[in-house]
């Protein structure tokens, strides 16, 4: 995904995933608070799309999902798009520069994406003129939101990866790593 246009099948999968996530978020997840906060699947999905597909697709998916959220919820247009574009691009760059493989990458990235979303949203609202003090309760809500989103990050990562991986082109770096860790190319690749 470092060069060349992404395959159409991947883009279709990303678009379908975006629509499903936004509607599930608004229709179900938003109505079930956990420890007094609402789990937000959208920034997690954007971050994981970026982590799997790279910065360009991540940024575009972030913009699209953000716009869909703003349109569906009647919020200020462009606000969520801006924040999610940054999240998608950032996680895409993480993949392109580091390509992290640890088991807890999804958890850490999920927490970071949730934190960026909550803090970014609060900052933007302050900049747009919401006259509110930075209260302890607001910080508590942000911290709780990050923790709860980090907890659900692992299953969300599994679902996003399952949805998108069949559409991803084979990555030479990962193929090399697989060959290195298994002691040679897999029989399937050799065939």
């Amino acid at each position: 995904m470092n060069g060349g246009a992404p395959p159409t099948s991947l883009l279709l999968r990303v678009a379908a995933l975006a629509v499903v996530v936004v509607f599930v978020q608004i229709g179900v997840v938003s109505e079930v608070p956990v420890f007094g906060v609402v789990v937000d699947l959208s920034p997690l999905t954007v971050a994981f799309i970026g982590l799997l597909c790279g910065s360009t697709v991540g940024a575009c998916a972030g913009f699209g999902i953000g716009l869909l959220v703003d349109l569906t919820l009647g919020q200020t247009l462009g606000l969520t798009s801006l924040i999610f574009t940054a999240i998608g691009y950032g996680s895409g760059r993480l993949r392109e520069l580091r390509d992290p493989q640890g088991a807890l990458v999804a958890l850490v990235l999920g927490a970071a994406a949730a934190g960026a979303s909550l803090v970014g949203y609060s900052l933007m609202e302050f900049m747009l003129g919401v006259d509110a003090p930075v209260s302890f309760e607001l910080l508590r809500q942000i911290v709780l939101g990050v923790i709860v989103d980090a907890i659900v990050a692992l299953p969300v990562w599994a679902i996003v990866r399952r949805c998108l991986e069949p559409g991803l082109p084979d990555d030479p770096r990962r193929r090399r790593r697989r060959a290195y860790t298994t002691g040679g190319l897999s029989p399937l690749t050799r065939a």
Partner: peptide, 11 residues
């Protein structure tokens, strides 16, 4: 039929 998830726009 739907609810906003964020802290600022409670709709």
């Amino acid at each position: 039929i739907g609810a906003s998830p964020n802290l600022w726009n409670r709709t």
